[in-house]
Design a binder for these strands. Structure first.
Length: 351
DNA sequence: TAAGCGTGGAC
DNA sequence: TGTCCAAGCTT
């Protein structure tokens, strides 16, 4: 393959066809970094409104470094993978304290920051700092697996290095920033996972997969197994002031540090669910539930497991000692994951 | 290395 | 409804 021709045609295509996106207004490393974190495993259309709001709330490194924990979680509410925003907060505080507020411009230093792996490091270094570093994401592996007919399993972590070497050998040293973005843009708009638009691809004459007519068989990716279902019972409890009882989830693991209604795991075969609910609730909160009513079921699929939650509403006459009671207005300031929002919607509907 | 970690859209 | 994701990182 003629590398120079490949670079020129890819870059020309990008100049004519790339999307106007809010993180492409300038090369502010902070803005680039935030976009890269948000875009991890997340679609562009989903990210845009979150990104706009985030930049209004936290326009600079200093603003985000000084932000409260609850506010930074709220900025991420509904985006998923919440450890991303905790790690980003840690990273930006680090930058603020030890790097004079400037995102590091060396692979060595930027890679030390929490939540910044090989892809994000390469993306910031190339896009914001014009350094010829590979930024190998799913797009790049898909595009390169087709162009160069690379048949390694891209589901395996070790495979990324093969693509990094290939990008290293083919990247434009004159404009690595545009080059890396163009590879990803091509993957997003032309070289898509299914039904790639090979007939309008600017480099189809240099694509080994297209030449052989095997673009639909690449990349090779082994399937991930789907997780099992966990069953819960959960209760939206109201006191005499109309306040609701919420609790903070553990600081590690699934939906860490987010808020939820009291809930208890049950066996799938469990009968007398409301009786079990009362016993578990009274043990945890030492308070009596009355007027317990089933209000529906919430089924939520995560990437690795499924929750099936039987939801109840109930009242307490006397406030229980533990737990946090909030008005519905206050509730809006706490970060609720999507399944908990679904439970709240059931409560509102049945009120 | 493989598993854990969210969500909403496309097919 | 089920499957496969989408600009990955941590442990």
């Amino acid at each position: 393959m003629n590398i120079n021709k490949f670079q020129i045609e890819l870059l020309q295509w990008y100049e004519l066809n790339h999307r106007q996106l809010p993180w492409r207004l300038n090369k502010d490393p902070y803005r680039i970094l935030v976009s890269e974190i948000m875009l991890q495993q997340t679609r562009v259309e989903t990210v845009i409104p979150y990104y706009e709001r985030f930049m209004n709330w936290f326009p600079t490194v200093k603003d985000f470094a000084e932000a409260e924990e609850e506010k930074i979680l709220k900025s991420w509410e509904g985006l998923g993978y919440y450890s991303r925003v905790r790690n980003l907060h840690s990273a930006i505080k680090e930058v603020s304290e030890f790097y004079e507020g400037k995102i590091p411009n060396t692979k060595e230093d930027i890679s030390k920051l929490k939540g910044i792996g090989p892809y994000t490091a390469g993306a910031v270094l190339s896009i914001a700092y014009d350094k010829p570093e590979p930024a190998v994401d799913g797009n790049v592996m898909r595009v390169y697996s087709r162009i160069f007919k690379i048949q390694e399993d891209i589901a395996k972590p070790a495979t990324r290095k093969i693509f990094e070497k290939k990008v290293h050998d083919t990247i434009s040293n004159e404009d690595p920033s545009t080059f890396n973005q163009a590879l990803m843009e091509l993957g997003a708009l032309i070289c898509t996972p299914t039904s790639p638009k090979c007939l309008i691809c600017p480099i189809n004459d240099q694509c080994q997969a297209f030449i052989e007519g095997i673009q639909d068989q690449l990349p090779i990716k082994t399937k991930m197994k789907k997780g099992k279902t966990i069953h819960y019972v959960s209760v939206v409890v109201e006191n005499e002031n109309g306040e609701l009882l919420i609790q903070k989830r553990a600081s590690k693991g699934l939906l860490a540090g987010l808020w939820e209604f009291p809930n208890y795991e049950i066996k799938e075969s469990e009968t007398q669910i409301s009786t079990q609910l009362i016993l578990d609730f009274e043990e945890q909160y030492n308070g009596k539930l009355i007027d317990i009513k089933p209000i529906g079921t919430v089924k939520h699929k995560f990437s690795h497991l499924t929750w099936e939650v039987q939801v109840f509403s109930a009242q307490v006459l006397q406030n229980v000692k533990e737990g946090l009671w909030v008005s519905e207005k206050e509730l809006a300031t706490y970060t609720l994951p999507i399944p908990v929002q679904k439970m709240y919607e059931l409560y509102v509907y049945h009120k």
